[in-house]
Nucleic acid binder design. Structure first.
Lengths: 226, 226
DNA sequence: CCTTTAGGTTAAGCAACTGTTAAGCGTTGC
DNA sequence: GCAACGCTTAACAGTTGCTTAACCTAAAGG
């Protein structure tokens, strides 16, 4: 994973702290998003699917612990790295933090260089964790390793052919796949199936994932679009 | 075992010492957790199942010796590496330390490079000892050395094939293992067994460990999930 | 408009795969 | 040599997924 592909979400109610972190992370080439409270953070996280989330503990509306718990309850954040930001000596919270599934703690104040190297350490972890087996598009995640589709937090199990078909289409969102191309890639070059077979599978996908994602290009084939 | 998979728990009441160790270990890519006293350390250890635990001797609430004794009393920490941290010349404690099952001593102050190489030495020992001897997922620990599965503290003895199968699945929780993959890894490439053999073993595991842990992905294989 | 053509929909039958059970066989320990 | 155990297989049951056929609808082009 390139540094340029890494999305980091910062959630803190203090603008100073946000600016400090954002500035330093962006200087390193990370892609930084910010939110000022837990609720906002939660929404933004669902929207952008960040790789790392840094949560302040003390926040209005929804504190860090709660936000983390809610994030971890969603399958698409099961492998996201979540870190708490805490004032030095607030450590009482560490137990509670790890209990809701935090991966790390960062204590403030922290020096820029230490901060960055901390983030890099987290990143190494992220790379080790996730093979290349995950496709993310909008609020949809396809996890080849688990044979699972996650749509805005909900895990969906698909039968084999449907899953393969969906994987294929999602692998290049927006790109149109010709019918014959789909046949050869999902069914294989040898097997010969009737005309309606693809349609039926597309139909099932529309039923399970949502109508709008799969677009028909008449006379050509299908494409996936968010 | 990858560096990125190694979890180290540091327990010391002095924040400076914690920060020093944490910083240096993280720079190397280890996964570091910290606690400030024995009780907290104990709780955190149960939660995160670390591979190496570094305990300061002098701590409030529960000192290093006692913490170690309690850790060693739990089956899942029988093979965890536990190291004491001690001020130079506190040698009186060394005897007591080894008696409760410590694996090593680190004397402070210590230089970063020496510290790291010491940890690496421990790690080599961990690998040599057990050749990935322990797999931990949620409330399940797999102890390769003793051919034992510990589920929420209860030891379960499994026959060899069942154990190998379970080990394989648990080694990557959530990941789907194809039937042929299972066959080649558990039975070996040469032996040819019938189709139903895997199913029967899965069935026995479901019987002994619990139905919900083993999920069938039809047409593909099985996966382990907590 | 009407025709043509491609795609959508549905249910049914078939095929593929997995679950379950019991029995056979070899090994080990007593 | 008997009992207990582990591994594999066979037979059957149960389930799910895949494909097809028949019919319907929508879009495009004359």
């Amino acid at each position: 994973m390139e540094v340029n592909d890494v999305k980091i979400l910062l959630v803190d109610d203090e603008s100073d702290v946000l600016d400090f972190m954002k500035y330093n992370l962006e200087k390193e080439g990370f892609w930084v998003y910010t939110a000022q409270d837990g609720l906002e953070g939660l929404q933004l996280a669902k929207k952008i699917n960040p790789d790392i989330i840094i949560l302040d503990l003390m926040m209005p509306k929804l504190d860090g612990i709660e936000t983390c718990r809610e994030l971890r309850a969603l399958p698409e954040f099961k492998n996201t790295i979540i870190t708490f930001l805490t004032a030095r000596d607030e450590d009482y919270s560490q137990i509670a933090g790890f209990e809701v599934g935090a991966d790390d703690y960062i204590t403030k104040p922290i020096k820029p260089r230490v901060f960055i190297s901390r983030i890099r350490a987290l990143l190494r972890r992220l790379e080790a964790n996730s093979g290349d087996a995950k496709l993310k598009v909008g609020d949809i995640v396809i996890d080849r390793e688990r044979y699972m589709v996650v749509k805005s937090g909900v895990e969906i199990q698909l039968p084999r052919k449907e899953f393969e078909l969906m994987s294929l289409l999602v692998s290049k969102p927006g790109r149109v796949f010709k019918r014959e191309e789909i046949l050869s890639k999902v069914w294989g070059n040898e097997t010969i199936v009737g005309d309606r077979t693809i349609d039926v599978h597309i139909r099932k996908l529309r039923e399970k994932i949502g109508d709008d994602y799969f677009k028909t290009i008449k006379g050509i084939g299908y494409k996936f679009d968010a």
